[in-house]
Amino acid sequence: MPVIATVTGATGFLGRRLVHSLLEENDLIVRCLLRESSDTDALYENVPVIARERIEIHRGELNDKKFVEEHFANSDVVYHLAAALGGSASTMFLNTVIPTRQLLETAARVNVGRFVLISSMGVYGTQTVKRWGTLDESTPVDPMPEKRDPYTFSKVRQETVAQELSESLGLPLVIVRPGVIYGPGRSAVTSRVGLPLGPMVIRMGGGQQLPYTFVENCAEGIKLAGLTPDMSGEIFNLVDDDLPTGKRILRLMKQQGQRIRTLWIPRGAIGPLSRIYEWYSNWSEGQLPPVLTRHKCEAMWKPLRYSNAKAKHKLNWKPKISTEDGLQQTIAG
């Protein structure tokens, strides 16, 4: 019997790479649950005709319990990638947390073999890690996620819900926490590098490591988290080797002829500036929104090291694309 791997969010930036990675496995069927409006062109791109036969497309809404139940049935593993990437906290919760709760309940009801939840490395609280210390799977999750951005807040809640339901319903669960996923089609200049201000980027520090993972490396790790035996209850961080710094990314972009204007905020100034900004935001009752707070700055730009040892050891994962190559491909577009 072939393994049935069901994927939500299969046409997304990461999802289609996961599908391609899964198709490298023999005797495996990839079942994609897509919205009516989802475009499948990129999903089939560069997939050999023979492998295309192993892609099942089912269209419907993830909040349609009947649709989900029908297609979760017989699934050996469900990879849940679908999530909102932007919007207010309520929008993020509505499109990320609430569907996840329903999917987990359905998965337990139809005895899915394993549920792989794609979370984010952003869920960690860095308060307990010293500067230049190592952040790994033993680092606690942020105890005050509501003080972070809506995406991180929704991801922390999504994990909590998943862990509670996994325990109460007896559903085998694996959580994968990728770092910042980049690759062709998505810029390498993210909020970890700095904040956009009109046509400029305010570079925050710049010498600290960034927890990045190239999209194809990340997809490979996620695949292994679903297929490697006896992983129930495990959590894996996915970041590449030889992690880049913001300075390195911006330098590479300039070397490749891209014009990017930056304003540098030295690392030592980030703390005091964030305190002043946070004070002003509170004093003015939100005349300027609290986008730059001490809590957020610590989480985003504190100089840390990021470990991928557990994924390498337990999943036998190895980032195939080097950071240098990944950045070159991304900047080239």
Binding site: F93, E146, R157
Partner: peptide, 29 residues
């Protein structure tokens, strides 16, 4: 909720939503 918080003469005592997660996020923030 953000505007009520700016008014001293009142206090928000509860939020309600059929989705517990939505009520949770509003209460936490």
């Amino acid at each position: 909720l953000s505007q009520i918080a700016r008014i001293d003469s009142v206090e928000v005592v509860a939020v309600c939503d059929v989705h517990e997660d939505l009520a949770y996020q509003a209460a936490a923030r």
